[in-house]
Amino acid sequence: MASLKDIKRHIVAVKQTQKLTRAMNMVAAAKLRSTQNRTERFRYYAEEHARLIQEIADRSPPDACSLLLPSESSRKVLILGITSDRGLCGSFNTNLCSHLDRQIVAQRKDGYEPELFLIGRKGRDYYNRRKVKIYSDLVGVTGSFDYVLAQKIAEALIEEYMAGNYREIYVMYTLFKSLSRFEVTFERFLPLGQEEETAPKAKSPAPGHDGSGKVDQDYVIEPKADVLLTRLIPRSLSIMIYRAMLESVTSENAARMQAMDNASKSCKDIIESLTMAYNKARQAAVTSELLDIVNGAEALKD
């Protein structure tokens, strides 16, 4: 049985931890608020953009832009995985990595060679220890990044694809659904165009414009569809990367907030049970001292 002093010290330590987790919870909540706003505003733009690109792509000759065509020249597949730079966010990173692991296995089974482009320190550290080729990594950007960075990444990837180094390029990130729901999402980055059944989790269909009694419209496109398409595709790819990063950072903050909330709660539980143990131990000490005194007095009486 621990002594009174030990228990007291333990309680103080847990209280300190609780202060820490509370503070981190609040920091994550504040960050979440700002990124969530950004993500939600951007999401609408990205979805509309993706939908329009699809509309144009469907109406232009399949060879209008080389980025639409599957590249058969290589057996390599590149997967862009987005994780966080910092830990203490629950299962956020492990979840993504395990999905990524499964994807790697699946790609290998199909006879392709997967390579990774990793954003975020946690993902890099995880795959540094594993037998997967890392094409490149980017660390320390999830705290602050802008559209220009996404543009640069997209440009680099497009260049690799155009050079015929990769057969397909995918993006894997954590989609922010609500404060307590995140979903690891796997999307094809290049080639654009109709997704085949290869993608395990296809994009949700574009909102609003399917079903709902609308006939398939024929657009007048000015300038020609393929001209417009070549102007828009690079932008659409940057948008996709930027969105994936925004979603990932938002999910990360939400996951951290939740993890810290849980940590604060368990701190509270521990403090409660320790206080109970402390009080019991103190009472036991008082009782045994009292007994000593009473016994002593009894002995003197005789």
Partner: peptide, 19 residues
């Protein structure tokens, strides 16, 4: 102003895309 010139769209316009 579209890339091919100024246009005005009224309700019932045929589907049209431009930059």
């Amino acid at each position: 102003f579209g890339s091919e010139g100024y246009f005005t769209a009224l309700p019932g316009h045929i589907p049209f895309l431009t930059d």
